[in-house]
Amino acid sequence: MSPTRRTAVAAGVFFLITEIAAIAGLVLYRPALTDADYVLGAAPTLGCCSAGSSS
């Protein structure tokens, strides 16, 4: 396999990994993107989020 072909295959593999990660991210962020109460409602994890900014 020539070096150019090997580089093209590596770029293609990284592109596929990027696309799979983007789809997985969309699935994980769907509640935040579609449900207004997810952002505007009471946050059960407020303590862990505000602990870092309280110092």
Rank of each mutant, 00 (worst) to 15 (best):
G47S: 09
G41A: 04
T34N: 09
G41H: 12
I23C: 07
P3S: 09
G25P: 02
A21C: 08
F14I: 00
A42N: 05
A24L: 15
M1N: 03
L28K: 14
I20Q: 06
A22Y: 13
Y38N: 07
S55A: 04
T18K: 05
L33C: 10
T45N: 10
V39P: 00
R30H: 09
V39N: 12
A32T: 06
P3I: 07
V39W: 09
A11F: 03
L28Q: 09
Y38C: 02
V27E: 11
P44F: 05
A32K: 12
G41P: 01
L46Q: 07
V27S: 14
E19R: 02
A11Q: 03
V27I: 15
L40H: 10
C49F: 10
R6I: 01
M1C: 03
S53M: 13
A21H: 07
T34Y: 06
D37Y: 07
L46V: 05
A42D: 11
F14K: 01
E19G: 00
L33H: 07
A51F: 15
Y38E: 06
A21G: 08
L46R: 14
P31S: 06
G41Y: 08
S2E: 04
G12D: 01
S50I: 08
S55Y: 08
L28E: 11
A10C: 01
S50M: 08
A43Y: 11
L28H: 12
A36L: 15
V39K: 10
R6D: 03
Y29W: 11
D35G: 04
P31C: 11
R30M: 11
A42H: 11
T45S: 13
S53R: 15
G47H: 14
C49L: 09
L28V: 14
D37N: 08
F14Q: 00
Y38D: 07
C48D: 12
Y29S: 10
A11E: 04
